[in-house]
Design a protein around this nucleic acid. Structure first.
Length: 307
DNA sequence: GGCCAGGCTATGG
DNA sequence: CCATAGCATGGC
């Protein structure tokens, strides 16, 4: 699946490239890296010079799409890339996922619009905190809030020489020690008390995010909904993007619009009807289907790639 | 300046 | 149960 590129090559070392830098090729097909990293699942990735840079956990990484797969470079020790395969979900066979979608015109159109779009597997706390900050915000604004949070309260991570500084997402314990005013200073607005409450619930152990994935979906959802400022949409984002529940189906303004326009002829079904439809129509890969609908609608409306 | 953004809570029918 | 104002903030 994977082979080392450079890293131990004497030529690279002799060329003065950082001895600490490491690279690999993740051989994967059907993977649209740009669409995936810019699809509103994650908010901190930056495109420049034909590559994407970001932080996964406590590791800086640069990714480049090539015909053979995804070329990755990071800083720091270790030939282990399982953390990146986990984040990118490169072992997932997209073919099987797409085959599980309902075979109807809207889904065919959505897949045709962006085959290769993938679901990532995020760290739960970062995902929860990010989506608490997302309500009634555009993606560009969400980025701004999170960048401030990370620059102020995240720990610096090791980057290769010449790269700009990068920060890990702040730990829950760090944010839990702040005040609401600190978070408002990061432009979190009315989301500040919600973010603080979530940080304290996680830091205190009252909410064990790592254990959610082992619970039945309804129970995991209830535990998230118990947090102030976390409703069905944010809960489902965490369940789908971080906890590994493939049927979680976040309905935001875009997906709600998609369902009404594509499946209800622009009518306004009762919320319960819409929710029932979302739960039953899309099958065992409903969450993936949702992501394709989201991307399809945004692209159709001419949304700017950056948000 | 009005409108809207990967929503949620509180309040009123 | 359903509908709607209000909430901070910023870009168009």
């Amino acid at each position: 699946m994977r082979r080392a590129v450079g890293g131990s090559s004497p030529h690279r070392v002799a060329a003065g490239i950082a001895e600490a830098s490491r690279a690999t090729l993740l051989a994967v097909r059907d993977y649209d890296l740009a669409a995936t990293l810019d699809s509103g699942q994650v908010f901190r990735w930056q495109a420049a010079g034909g590559r994407w840079t970001g932080v996964v956990g406590r590791r800086w990484v640069a990714l480049r799409q090539t015909p053979e797969g995804i070329l990755a470079e990071t800083a720091g020790p270790g030939p282990d890339w399982s953390w990146l395969e986990e984040f990118l979900q490169t072992r997932v066979e997209l073919e099987a996922v797409l085959a599980a979608f309902p075979d109807d015109p809207p889904m065919r159109a959505a897949v045709a619009a962006c085959r290769g779009l993938r679901l990532l597997r995020q760290e739960p706390w970062e995902c929860l905190a990010s989506f608490i900050c997302s309500s009634t915000k555009r993606i560009t604004h969400i980025r701004q809030i999170l960048e401030r949070l990370c620059a102020r309260y995240g720990e610096p991570v090791r980057v290769p020489p010449g790269e700009t500084a990068a920060f890990a997402f702040p730990r829950a314990t760090r944010l839990a020690a702040l005040t609401e005013a600190d978070l408002r200073a990061c432009k979190a607005g009315f989301r500040a008390p919600f973010l603080l409450a979530a940080a304290r619930a996680v830091a205190s152990g009252e909410l064990d995010l790592g254990a959610l994935g082992q619970r039945p979906l309804p129970e995991a959802r209830q535990r998230l909904l118990a947090l102030p400022g976390v409703g069905p949409k944010i809960a489902d984002c965490v369940l789908l993007f971080a906890c590994g529940f493939p049927t979680a189906f976040p309905v935001d303004v875009w997906v709600g619009r998609a369902l009404r326009e594509l499946y209800f002829q622009h009518r306004q079904p009762q919320p319960a009807v819409l929710a029932r439809f979302a739960e039953t129509h899309f099958g065992p890969q409903a969450g993936y289907a949702q992501q394709y609908l989201f991307h399809y609608m945004r692209a159709r409306r001419g949304a700017a790639p950056e948000g």
